[in-house]
Computed example of a mutant assay.
Amino acid sequence: MPIELEVAADGVALLTLNRPERLNALDPEHYALLSRAFERVRDDPAIRACVVTGAGERAFCTGADLKAPMPRLGPAEMAMTQRDLLPNRGMQLWKPLVAAVNGHCLAGGMCLLLACDIRLAAPHATFGLSEVRRGLIAGNGGTVRAGRDLPHALAMELLLTGDAWDAARAERWGLVNRVVPMASLLEEALAAARRIAANAPLAVQAAKEVALRARDLPLDDALRLEQAMLALLATTEDRAEGVRAFTEKRAPAFAGR
């Protein structure tokens, strides 16, 4: 399958873009399949965190497959704002995403990376938004998120030159959390996802949602949202289980209720 989704018993999903012969580039058909996979991540209560990676050692994802016809974007298509959503294209997915960047992360692949919460990269990974070299701008959230994740001058360098960064520079500027050896990349990403999945799932999703929504809110409104979410979580069974487990000096068994 070109888009693979495996779900383990520990609540961690592994989503793999499996087109290594095309550097994991995506045509319209595969973008639609990727959307279906993320819908399952969003909606399946058995999934608490998801690792996103590419097949092989050459590419995480190089964005749109330039050999495939570019989809038509007329008024009718522009009006279909909820079709084939992705986390980087409007999908409200509060379960954490951990990226394991195993090679080139370019154009639409970089846009997908920018929608991930924790990002690990192999030393040979490269990062870039090259759309201006093809007569476009970075879509699927790339132009918007680059300026939120990076200082203005650095975001503009990526967006306007189309140049790529190596992994060391990406780590230095916080585009990725850390660079790890390729041999241990996937396991370290899965380990991070397992640590997340061991926590109370409703609290984890609330933390992500509040942190992201608060970016666009005035401080008073953001603090009020945080307070309201905290009050709601205080009523959950998982909150009571967390207190019991602490008192009894054992690992909690969270149920997402």
Rank of each mutant, 00 (worst) to 15 (best):
L34H: 11
T16G: 01
A100T: 13
R148Q: 06
Q227M: 14
R213C: 12
R213P: 00
R134I: 00
A25Q: 14
R145H: 03
M156F: 14
M229E: 14
A125T: 07
L150I: 02
E209Y: 15
E157W: 13
I137S: 01
A183F: 00
L175F: 01
A164Q: 07
V176G: 05
R58G: 00
A100P: 02
S35C: 04
G103V: 03
R72I: 13
T235L: 03
D166P: 00
L158A: 13
W94R: 15
A100S: 08
P69H: 03
T247M: 11
A138R: 14
T62C: 11
H30P: 07
E248H: 03
L232I: 03
A189P: 11
L212I: 05
P71A: 03
A13Y: 03
P181Y: 12
H30V: 10
L86N: 06
Q82I: 00
L159G: 11
T161A: 08
A245F: 02
A168H: 12
T16M: 01
P181K: 10
F246R: 12
R215P: 13
A234H: 06
A9H: 01
L14G: 05
E29A: 12
R36E: 10
A9K: 09
L160I: 10
S184V: 11
E4H: 07
F254M: 06
T53S: 12
G109M: 10
V52R: 02
I196L: 15
R215A: 12
L5T: 09
G135V: 10
E248C: 07
A107F: 15
A191E: 10
G128E: 14
Q205F: 12
A168V: 11
R42C: 04
R250I: 00
V204N: 07
D238E: 03
K67I: 09
N18D: 13
I3W: 09
A153Q: 09
K208R: 15
A121G: 03
L33E: 13
D117N: 08
L175P: 01
A240S: 07
R224W: 03
A200F: 11
E4W: 01
W165S: 05
L212C: 13
A155M: 07
Q227Y: 08
P45S: 09
E77V: 09
E241D: 09
G109H: 15
E4M: 05
A193D: 09
C116W: 03
P96L: 14
E57L: 13
A211E: 09
L23M: 05
R58N: 03
R244P: 05
H152V: 08
E188M: 01
V243W: 15
A167E: 04
P96R: 15
A76K: 12
L120K: 06
L5R: 04
L159N: 13
L190C: 13
E209I: 13
E29K: 11
A49H: 01
E131I: 03
K249F: 08
L86S: 02
P20Y: 08
V176R: 02
L190S: 06
R244S: 02
L186F: 11
A76S: 14
A170N: 04
I137V: 04
G142S: 12
A193S: 11
L202G: 00
M80V: 08
T247C: 05
A99P: 08
E187D: 14
F246W: 04
